[in-house]
Design a binder for these strands. Structure first.
Length: 834
RNA sequence: GCCCGGGUGGCGGAAUGGCAUACGCGGGGGACUUAAAAUCCCUUGCCCUCCGGGGCGUGCGGGUUCGACUCCCGCCCCGGGCACCA
């Protein structure tokens, strides 16, 4: 009897799976497909148990689906472009490609070691020209459709680095590499994807995902898109003919309560309104400060509201009233029109501002019922809907009605109109970085901006020797790259030197998996039609907005290009919890990582897989515990021992039984074991199928093993062929979670020469699972007083009789006045006493 | 401030209207051993007990129900996300 040697077993089966191409599947319309996808990793440093948990969950699902007869696609690849590679180059002098490829090799080695059932033929790496040329291809298609465009835009700028910083690179308002250097804001030309063109649809089709995506992810996306229905209203500026200010409001019904118009500090009219004389210098410093402050939203978090009167008045178009024009730091240029009407009585921010600067607080809405809002010493704004008051001809209408009529009137009278605006902004994709996809555009002095023709793709990233991290786009310093002939006129021209945001890479990669080596197109639409959309996507909640929104946007663009025929790329999304150690998420920077490979060396990967599945349900965070792992290792040893001990007996002995006699002969012990096995099967199947509570599935398997061990010695009272059935059920149920050990047990049980990878999931047999005796609980007034064992399936009356006639129960019922009896067959009898 | 999660033994967690604490970890006791490790067995919510048993118990307070960890209302605490979005 061999000892459990996880290293040897795991190597053996990984080799076997490879030799049998066990996890490869090709499009075959005659078979039902299932696409299981884990978010592709950014290969940085070493793979830790946080990554591992994600892939384990995916692997269990993939293996389970295969056993259920699906044609499963389960691919893996690398999000290989990105900043860390470039930083490694700057700090350590290693080329980003070399650093990235080393990490990929390391990740891949560990993934193999964990036995994840990927179809490696489909592997992609986003930093390879074979992949990123299709980013460029998509860019060109979007350029043709006007979805890709260029405009000036504000960015974070470090004057010392002379480069653009991502929001994450701004620390306390300063550059992450120059902590004493405040970040400036700067307007530069940037490339954008017009995602706002799809804003309404991106919001709308979230409905189709309601059954498959976590509610909170849908909510986050809805909030991010931020659709807002309101009105745009024009206020004339008094004394400046032809100048007016447009405000956006969702509460045009409160316009009679406006006591000011407030502009964002960056609003283009501010300087004009201030004029070039005294006023400008008085407020110049304040204005400058406000404009600086608004670069990074986190910095203005709790900033106090500040503002100043610009010295001019606006005219309320509804009642002709003159109200002062102010500049306020809380008004955002990037939202709506960059100007608001200030209605202090009915908006909290306006209330705060008006209180500070002693502006009037006219009340124009009263609650429809209940206590009226009083003007003396108001302490808060009334922001709910109610009834209009003091609103001229609109007085008396409900807020809803007033909104409707006033919007229509504004439009009829020519100073406003109903409008829907979105919080979502266009996606800025330009990065002044080296390690990314070159943007395939050429600038010619004669022809202007010229798209690189398809035949010239890919625009290959040049090999670079030096990375200083200082200066503009690194590519600008490579003359061989920059200097190019204009594709139109053949004259001297320059290439675009910005690269694309890496979120572009990950927006469509799982379509490429369907046809990873196509060199004519990003993928063959026919193959995509078979495999996509993704049936089950698994990843971290961190990607709830950006990645998942961008990928939904790409799907719609691809649909409009005729490449795909569905509206949503991902049917079901599962967001797994973090792996914590010492209460915080494992991460290299925190220094609390448990390396996945170390884990596999110490305990074997099956133990590692089992632990991450058993320690918590997959959506919850999981605290790393070395002691609990030992428990999982012990369990697997116990199972190995149990099966190997009986393997010979089970394989060689046969009891001669005439057909049809089997059930008669079955001993109580046999029946009990098979019953337990099928009860476990029913619940494990349920856990796999609907709830994904792998932790309770593991617990059930442990129960089954405990039950078998209690029945030892099996040879007494159990026939070998019946024991085999129990062992086989156990093995098959373990297979998705601890596949290597399961294969080994399967082989011990006499199934030589194949693999479990395509074995069928066992069939549940209700008759075998059925109990013939059940414990029924006896309650008096809902309190448990005793238990009675009765035959299963008794109806209510029989059950009550049986329970009543139990001597112990009968005694308890003496002298009790019975009001009512509740009986639940096979469960309980509750006597309600008076 | 708003929006999600969540609160159950010493710990991770199970139970979605019907025996609260399955399964695992840890603890206690025992067997084996010269001894230890490993393994195996018993035990393990709290309180009272005349050792028969009895009472209390799922963050707190109320409600619905024959019966509530589970459903409803109101609070408290913890974690996460968003945060001047007009």
């Amino acid at each position: 009897m061999a000892e459990y040697d996880p290293q040897a077993i795991e190597r053996k089966w990984q080799e076997r799976w490879g030799a049998e191409r066990a996890f490869e599947a090709d499009a075959d319309p005659s078979k039902p497909k299932y696409y299981v996808l884990e978010m592709l990793p950014y290969p940085s440093g070493t793979m830790h148990m946080g990554h591992m948990r994600n892939y384990t969950i995916g692997d269990v699902v993939a293996r389970y689906r295969r056993m259920r007869g699906f044609h499963v696609i389960h691919p893996m690849g690398w999000d290989a472009f990105g900043l860390p590679a470039e930083n490694a180059a700057i700090q350590r002098g290693i080329h980003p490609r070399e650093w990235t490829n080393t990490n990929i090799e390391s990740f891949k080695r560990v993934m193999h070691r964990f036995g994840f059932s990927y179809d490696w033929r489909r592997e992609i790496s986003t930093c390879e020209p074979e992949y990123y040329r299709w980013n460029q291809w998509f860019f060109l298609r979007m350029l043709e459709k006007g979805i890709a465009y260029r405009k000036r835009s504000r960015v974070n700028w470090c004057p010392k680095c002379a480069t653009v910083l991502a929001n994450e690179q701004v620390v306390n308002g300063c550059c992450w590499r120059h902590e004493d250097t405040p970040v400036e804001s700067k307007d530069i030309e940037q490339w954008f994807f017009r995602i706002t063109q799809y804003a309404d649809e991106l919001l709308d089709t979230l409905k189709q995902l309601e059954d498959g995506w976590p509610e909170r992810v849908l909510t986050m996306q809805r909030n991010w898109i931020g659709k807002s229905r309101g009105a745009r209203v024009r206020f004339a500026v008094e004394g400046m003919a032809g100048t007016s200010i447009e405000v956006f409001t969702t509460r045009v019904d409160t316009i009679y309560g406006a006591s000011a118009v407030i502009l964002a500090p960056e609003h283009p009219l501010v300087d004009k309104l201030l004029g070039d004389a005294g006023a400008n210098t008085v407020h110049a410093a304040t204005l400058q400060k406000m404009r600086q402050a608004s670069v990074k939203t986190a910095d203005i978090e709790k900033a106090e509201k500040e503002g100043f009167f610009v010295g001019r008045y606006a005219v309320n178009p509804f009642n002709g009233e003159k109200i002062p024009i102010w500049v306020g730091n809380f008004v955002l240029m990037g939202y709506g029109t960059g100007a608001v009407m200030c209605v202090p009585a009915h908006d909290e921010r306006d209330f705060e501002f008006a209180t500070k600067y002693k502006l009037a607080i006219p009340i124009v809405v009263q609650p429809s019922e209940g206590k009226q809002f009083t003007p003396e010493t108001p302490t808060a704004a009334f922001t709910e809907y109610g009834k209009s008051v003091n609103s001229g001809p609109y007085t008396g209408f409900t807020s809803e009605k007033a909104n409707e009529i006033m919007t229509a009137d504004a439009e009829a009278r020519g100073f406003g109109k109903g409008e829907i605006i979105f919080r979502l902004k266009d996606w800025g994709i330009s990065r002044q970085r080296y390690w990314g996809t070159p943007i395939p555009v050429i600038y010619c002095d004669a022809c202007g901006m010229v798209a690189v023709p398809d035949k010239d793709l890919p625009v290959v990233l040049p090999a670079m020797a030096k990375f200083s991290g200082v200066g503009q786009s690194p590519l600008a310093s490579v003359p061989e790259f920059v200097n190019v002939k204009c594709p139109k006129c053949g004259g001297a021209a320059r290439r675009e030197t910005d690269t694309m945001d890496t979120f572009v890479d990950s927006s469509w990669y799982f379509y490429r998996y369907a046809d990873a080596h196509n060199d004519k197109a990003p993928f063959d639409p026919a193959k995509a039609r078979y495999w996509l959309p993704v049936d089950q996507y698994i990843g971290g909640i961190v990607h709830a907005i950006l990645h998942l929104l961008y990928t939904r946007f790409f799907c719609k663009v691809m649909r409009d290009l005729g490449l795909v025929n569905h509206n949503e790329p991902v049917q079901r999304l599962f967001t797994q919890g973090l792996v914590l150690k010492g209460g915080t998420a494992m991460s290299k920077s925190k220094g609390n990582v448990v390396g996945a490979e170390d884990m596999a060396v110490k305990y074997g990967c099956d133990t590692g897989r089992l632990y991450t599945l058993f320690a918590a349900p997959p959506e919850k965070d999981l605290e790393w515990s070395e002691q609990a792992i030992e428990g999982c290792a012990r369990f697997l040893q116990r199972v190995h021992k149990l099966v190997s001990k009986h393997a010979e007996w089970v394989n060689t002995q046969r009891t001669e039984v005439a057909p049809g006699q089997a059930f008669e002969l079955a001993s109580l012990k046999e029946k009990a074991l098979l019953r337990k096995a099928h009860q476990v099967l029913r619940r494990v199947t349920h856990d796999f199928e609907t709830r994904w509570h792998f932790n309770s599935a593991v617990a059930l398997l442990m129960e089954l093993v405990n039950e078998i061990q209690k029945a030892e010695p099996l040879e007494e009272g159990v026939r070998p062929e019946e024991a085999r059935k129990v062992f086989e059920l156990l093995t098959l149920m373990m297979a998705p979670m601890v596949p290597h050990l399961a294969e080994e047990l399967w082989e011990m049980l006499g199934h030589t020469g194949g693999t479990l990878a395509r074995a069928g999931w066992p069939e549940f047999v209700a008759e075998l699972a059925a109990e013939d005796q059940v414990e029924v609980v006896m309650q008096i007034n809902g309190r448990v007083k005793g238990k009675v064992s009765v035959e299963a399936g008794l109806d209510r009356e029989e059950l009550v009789e049986r329970v009543k006639s139990d001597p112990k129960i009968a005694k308890l019922l003496e002298g009790v006045r019975v009001v009512k009896i509740i009986a639940v067959p096979d469960k309980l009898v509750n006597v309600v006493a008076g």
